[in-house]
């Protein structure tokens, strides 16, 4: 087990909060006209984050990276509830899983009857570094409103062998090449303050 805690960073109406995610999960209420930015780095155990958009023009952006190694079992649950019409949500989830680790990702976007003119998106991408690594992704859209836009995508696979060979054919060692590709995948999805922890994990496990 790694000794580093999961990292959590949230900015709501100009107020920032950083720390870890409590085991019982977090419920974040976003009132009208407010925006919340949430970044999460999941290294072990589970994380539950629920965001409720309660007033018009409320919005959220959730960026998550999960890194799982050895024989870890992780669960990541993200839920966004568009309680009010005219709300917007974006989820970007990236994962790297190696050894014999398993990660289950469950992401829900709920748009009840009243949630008209809402926009929601969820994008999940995971790289498996060993044949024994497993990611189970269950994206879920629960949509009862008719005038909404909702998009989700999930891609899970091994590293691109063509890209790996290309880098190696230019003299770059396999481990470095792998790190370059993994870094490229997660690049846009995390705040700089998470960088050192991500680097350390990669150096040890990827």
């Amino acid at each position: 087990m790694t000794s580093i805690d999961n990292l959590f960073l949230m900015t709501l109406s100009g107020q920032s909060e950083s720390g870890t995610v409590p085991p019982e999960g977090r419920r974040i209420i976003v009132p009208a006209g407010q925006h919340v930015d949430i970044s999460l780095l999941l290294l072990h155990g589970n994380a539950d984050i629920h965001v409720v958009l309660t007033g018009k023009q409320a919005s959220c952006r959730i960026q998550t990276l999960y890194l799982s190694c050895q024989n870890n079992r992780n669960n990541l649950n993200l839920e966004v509830i568009h309680e009010s019409p005219e709300t917007t949500s974006e989820q970007i989830i990236k994962g790297i899983v190696t050894d014999t680790a398993h990660t289950a990702f469950h992401g829900i976007i709920r748009m009840p009857h009243q949630a008209q003119q809402c926009v929601g998106s969820q994008n999940h991408r995971a790289v498996l570094l060993t044949p024994q690594a497993v990611v189970m992704a269950t994206p879920e859209l629960e949509i009862y409103a008719d005038d909404v836009q909702c998009a989700h995508g999930s891609a899970i696979g091994a590293l691109d062998t063509a890209a790996l060979f290309y880098l190696m054919s230019r003299g770059i060692a396999e481990k470095t090449a792998r790190h370059i590709l993994l870094q490229a995948m997660i690049n846009d999805s995390l705040p700089p303050s998470f960088e050192p922890v991500v680097q350390e994990w990669m150096a040890q496990h990827a």
Binding site: D160, A162, A163, Y166, Q183, A184
Partner: peptide
């Protein structure tokens, strides 16, 4: 091969 997210200049330097 296309390498999304890998900057050309940084790639050259690494190589």
């Amino acid at each position: 091969t296309e390498l999304p997210g890998v900057g050309s200049a940084l790639f050259l330097k690494t190589a």
